[in-house]
Design a protein around this nucleic acid. Structure first.
Lengths: 224, 224
DNA sequence: ACATATTTAGACCGGCGGTCTAAATATGTC
DNA sequence: GACATATTTAGACCGCCGGTCTAAATATGT
């Protein structure tokens, strides 16, 4: 475990240019093949790195992947620069959330590189394991957003926060995947309409249940 | 491609007992490691199969995986023996659907083997590719269920069927994953309550939008 | 008994991620 | 400049991987 920290420190202390050059090449490979199917040897050859050099700066393949994703997340954060939303009403919550997601969607639509890298993460359990800490931070942010919605009454509180978050997140990823797959065959206006309806779907699934529909029942808040 | 068919035929013509013995061992490995991280060599050693033998009956590792999953699906189908639902009203649709899913949930809860095998499929893109045809059939069934709901007016028709299906399916998998992870720490009554509320969430996300909430708008049916 | 077709054994291949040792290079000290 | 020490680099090597291939063994038909 100390090996890991040492290697990370060494990488951080490297001249920016060199580190960037290495990560660029690694990123290209990971983007094309994901974590497991990417060839470390191929990366090293392309980057003109010896094995000894590589393992001096990266504890293993997963750490190299982590470095690539960490950089990508920084870049994305810079493009988005999201501040925590501060809704004053339920309508306001949905308004601000829609704006936030619209922003993210827009940025990723104009940045295939980051979008593809992001999708890759959720295609492999190993990738998620390799960047568990980064993922944790992201999911926490997502949870906080949901939590804020619960506090203001925009979001149902009768299900465990983690469950609600993960279901919504999974559905969001699938929607993203669908758009990535079908974007070309869609007219821009259709795409916009569908996007809007997908958002309404999220609002519907996350809204407090009013006990009015065929299968709902009175819902007490869920407590751990 | 002909190689593939030949090998499949040979496998089918094998004595049931022998084929079952092989698949049992392979299944154990796949269940523990998934497709990519499973070791074919390890399976062959454990099953006392030579390389030549193996590749005489399986075109490749993926085909062996496919054979395992195909058998598991047959077994599951036998345990569930679902007939297409025939709802007479919206309430009836949700009623029958709830019953169907309750049935599936119950079967999988009492059959960790099949449940884990199923989860493994969605953890690896390679696994999904290896059994693409089987998966197609399953997703088609799922789509038909949604489609029936649309026809009777229980399910929104303002989004492409595939998108709606995939989002719902993804959310369902995530819910399953959450339950698998948290089942032990949950009181049975809580589990039942949550299960019920999750179902209400699905009903809410799939129900036709009435244009009444904060972010929805009038929705025209989506046509390809 | 013999020819033919099916089935099995396992050596072998290139490539993988990762380890290890020795050489090269930088750094500090007199 | 010389020398000792610490950092950095090179690349041979390891065990294992999925997959190929050839030759031997075995079954089948006549």
């Amino acid at each position: 475990m100390d090996q890991r920290r040492q290697a990370r420190v060494r990488l951080r202390q490297l001249p920016d240019q060199q580190r960037a050059a290495w990560l660029d090449i690694a990123e290209e490979e990971f983007r094309a093949f994901g974590l497991e199917r990417a060839s470390l040897n191929r990366i090293l050859t392309r980057a003109a790195l010896s094995k000894g050099q590589a393992y001096y700066y990266f504890a293993d393949k997963g750490e190299l992947y982590r470095a690539v994703i960490e950089r990508a997340i920084s870049e994305l954060a810079g493009l988005i620069n999201a501040s925590p939303i501060q809704p004053e009403s339920v309508a306001d919550y949905w308004q601000q959330t829609a704006t936030l997601f619209g922003h993210v969607t827009e940025v990723l639509k104009q940045n295939d590189r980051l979008a593809e890298l992001g999708r890759g993460i959720y295609r492999e359990a190993a990738a998620q394991a390799a960047i568990a800490d980064l993922l944790d931070a992201l999911h926490t942010q997502f949870e906080r957003l949901i939590e804020t919605g619960q506090q203001i009454g925009a979001i149902r509180s009768d299900l465990p926060l983690t469950l609600l978050t993960e279901m919504a997140f999974a559905a969001a990823r699938e929607a993203d995947r669908w758009f990535a797959l079908n974007a070309q065959t869609l007219h821009p206006q259709d795409a916009r309409a569908i996007n809007h309806r997908v958002f309404s779907l999220f609002a519907a699934m996350l809204a407090p249940s009013d006990g009015g529909d065929a299968s709902a029942q009175a819902s007490k808040p869920y407590k751990e």
